[in-house]
């Protein structure tokens, strides 16, 4: 066990940061906000934590806290600017935001280390703290998927108009999505730089968006469990695929493409559907569904309009 842990430490660390990055894109997605801003927040969080540690020699705790606070505030401001955009336009605005962050880090001079980035970010950050943070984040996200909040998030995503008439403020939920996405992205970036001790512009480019997105798409976009599945697959897959040899990237690409096209809800979505189907089978075998009784009670008119007009005729035509 310890051997496994020691020899795979880097992968375990990458799973944690990858998971939280994935959550930073998944949380807004679950609220119907198609925002990739989490990747930009990752960059901001990583650089901010690195700068604070190098120049102010702050502790890991302070660096992470400051990074999360800053990215949450930036998330809020970004959200206030663009939360009215929808669909593709919102997605692309946030992609632009992410890429601008990348350009800024290249041009930041000594503060950001230009195209080489920053290194020597060494603190007292331990693996135990990293696990604790990851578990806390997972628990909070899981809490938002159940009960009242879970139902409301579902409504905001699947039917905004219905959500409004159920007394749910779309504006508040969408802004929350931006803030949470920002904080999670910042946390992922800060943790990553603290365990890897270096960060550069290449780490926060378009590839980061693709990585976070593929984790959710393959794992599942509707639950934290999907993000966990995705993070594990895409952190460990490249390592396992070295066995397949030189074509690992191709296999990786094919998996992502297949999932994107055929499993829009990801592996977790398939499990959920399977579970639903099994439950229905069991229920039907146990007792006939009440639906059958209702349907046998009378003929359901397939086109309601006809009957309605007929009813009027009977009533009013002498």
């Amino acid at each position: 066990m310890m051997d496994f842990y020691d020899s795979n430490l880097v992968l375990i660390q990458a799973t944690c940061t990858g998971l939280i990055l994935a959550l930073s894109i998944q949380v807004p997605l679950r609220m119907g906000v198609f925002s990739f801003a989490g990747a930009g927040s990752y960059g901001i969080g990583a650089y901010l934590a690195a700068i604070l540690v190098i120049e102010q020699e702050v502790s890991a705790f302070v660096a992470i806290g400051a990074a999360m606070l800053a990215t949450a505030v930036i998330g809020l401001l970004l959200g206030l600017l663009i939360f009215k955009l929808n669909g593709l336009y919102l997605a692309m605005a946030t992609v632009a935001f992410d890429l601008i962050i990348g350009v800024i880090t290249i041009n930041g001079g000594e503060t950001t280390g230009g195209s080489t980035g920053l290194y020597g970010v060494i603190t007292d950050f331990t693996m135990g703290q990293m696990f604790a943070l990851t578990v806390i984040v997972l628990a909070l996200v899981a809490l938002s998927e159940v009960g009242r909040t879970g139902r409301r998030v579902d409504a905001v995503r699947d039917d905004p108009e219905l959500a409004l008439s159920m007394g749910i403020s779309l504006r508040r939920y969408r802004l929350t999505a931006f803030v949470v996405s920002g904080a999670l992205g910042g946390l992922a970036g800060a943790m990553n730089v603290l365990v890897r001790s270096a960060i550069g512009p290449l780490d926060i480019g378009f590839g980061l968006i693709v990585l976070g997105l593929t984790m959710i798409i393959v794992g599942g976009s509707r639950s934290w469990k999907g993000a966990v599945i995705g993070a594990i697959i895409f952190t460990w897959l490249p390592d396992i695929l070295t066995a397949i040899g030189e074509w690992q990237e191709l296999v990786y690409g094919i998996i992502v493409a297949l999932a994107a096209v055929f499993l829009p809800r990801g592996i977790y979505g398939v499990l959920v559907d399977l579970n639903k189907w099994l439950r229905r089978r069991r229920r039907e075998r146990r007792d006939p569904p009440p639906a059958v009784a209702a349907e046998q009670a009378g003929d359901i008119d397939p086109k309601p309009g006809d009957v309605r007009e007929f009813a009027l005729n009977e009533e009013t035509v002498p």
């Binding site: 409301r152 579902d154 409504a155 699947d158 039917d159």
Partner: peptide
Amino acid sequence: RLLPDLNVRANIQIGADSRTT
């Protein structure tokens, strides 16, 4: 307009949710 991922009870509960704040 029912939410496809929620069962009947949860769909109705959304209505009651609006009263709890």
